[in-house]
Nucleic acid binder design. Structure first.
Lengths: 242, 242
DNA sequence: GTTTAAGGGTCGGTTCCTATACCTTCAAAC
DNA sequence: GTTTGAAGGTATAGGAACCGACCCTTAAAC
């Protein structure tokens, strides 16, 4: 019998939960695909040559080629042969695939994990972000104001804003966590209509957050980030079951 | 040229970082080993039978047996045959291995990631934890006060406290993240001397945190958790390079 | 002493990854 | 316009991990 109205979560459930071994090919498709979909690798970008890239990733070339083939077949990449050729990010990108049923059924967990990571990053940023880094973030917010009419562009720059915030912590692992979370959320966010007034208010929250970061108010920044993300969750709660 | 004094962190570094495919056997050893070392599976515990456990984990029995063999050889488990037999957590546990050079060199990243996750969880808990769940946490804090002289027992219950806090969010993924973080920190924490007065002050912070959670003060709880974890980091900073 | 539930062990087949070598294309350099 | 070199494209062989099914051994319960 649980002492809480929340679904009870036994830590041993996590210990004995199914273990899925992720193959190198899957990991590679996931990493490159997420980077492309988030705009970290903008259309037209040329990837490093296969022979160099597979060395950098620490995998065999045939494995890397499998991943590149998958991304080419899904329309995210294309390759040209011959000297001066290479593998490029497609322009334009293929239409985003709708989120899988599996993601939709676990959307609350995804949101919660993002919330935790971003809130923690906000607090760390309040202690570590240099004034110069905050100026850069303010510049990003300024550009975002110009994109209220074009959600596609807004979303891409919004990702950059959040990732740049993670960068101010100086912790590579947190930057990776942030990009992973943004990738996990992208499908859900694409479900929502984002009229300009909503984006304006969202960007207003960005500025408010920056103010708190400048004052070094960690607790306030954490709360502000939570409010910022909650806005999205409220809309999702109205669209999705449970 | 960087605009920050922190080491610059390019998000593309994460995209092109080496990809290591983790095998099912490694994952299983990691999961069970961490659960045992953290005390989530106390000495004497009987694990589910191999045939049932491998089904639960979604792996082949031979793979599971490889993991159990590794943990038996390292002294964490032992097995008895015949009816009424099974695989049990060893009592006493083998002495903890000193942290690897790899962990020591990245201890700041480990601390930062734990900080982010725990701070985020603290904020979520401030909104979701039921009074009953907080009572349970207060009880844990009470028991901790009795263990100031025995760091081994204190640490195990401290882990339970933090994991139980994660449970109040109702998000299984966050509970898993918390146990993972506690596992990653355990080697580092074992390096530090923990006299009773330090533990008393640490548990005082637990109570302070609970007070903020009870008042639903998310930002304050986040800040309190940050201060709580910072105490450990300060000591580590005095012991470890960079 | 038979039954039963547990761990211990073996073997063939499959998928994935690695490593290496070689081929094809094509733009830039000469 | 020929050469050349850097890029993608192909083929193959070997190894590592995983799976699934089978049988053996042990020891408590009946």
């Amino acid at each position: 019998m649980s002492t809480s109205t929340l679904p009870s979560v036994d830590p041993l459930d996590a210990v004995f939960a199914p273990v899925r071994s992720v193959t190198a090919l899957e990991e590679t498709v996931e990493r490159l695909g997420t980077a492309i979909r988030l705009g970290l690798l903008p259309p037209g970008t040329r990837l490093p040559a296969e022979r160099g890239l597979c060395a950098q990733l620490g995998i065999a070339r045939s494995t890397l080629r499998g991943a590149l083939l998958a991304l080419a077949q899904s329309g995210h990449l294309y390759a040209t042969r011959g000297r001066g050729g290479g593998t490029f990010v497609a322009d334009p990108q293929p239409p985003a695939a709708p989120p899988s049923a599996e993601v939709l059924s676990q959307w609350r967990d995804v949101c919660d994990q993002r919330m935790a990571v971003e809130v923690g990053i906000a607090l760390l940023a309040a202690e570590r972000a240099t004034p110069e880094a905050l100026d850069g973030l303010a510049d990003l917010a300024g550009v975002l104001d110009e994109l209220l009419e074009d959600f596609g562009s807004y979303r891409q720059l919004d990702v950059r804003f959040h990732v740049a915030l993670a960068e101010t912590t100086g912790c590579a692992g947190l930057v990776a966590s942030m990009t992973e979370m943004q990738g996990a959320m992208s499908g859900l966010i694409s479900l929502i209509a984002h009229p300009p007034e909503v984006l304006r208010s969202s960007n207003e929250q960005h500025r408010q957050l920056l103010g708190l970061l400048r004052r070094g108010n960690g607790g306030g920044a954490a709360q502000a980030m939570a409010d910022h993300l909650r806005a999205t969750e409220h809309v999702l709660a109205g669209l999705l079951p449970v």
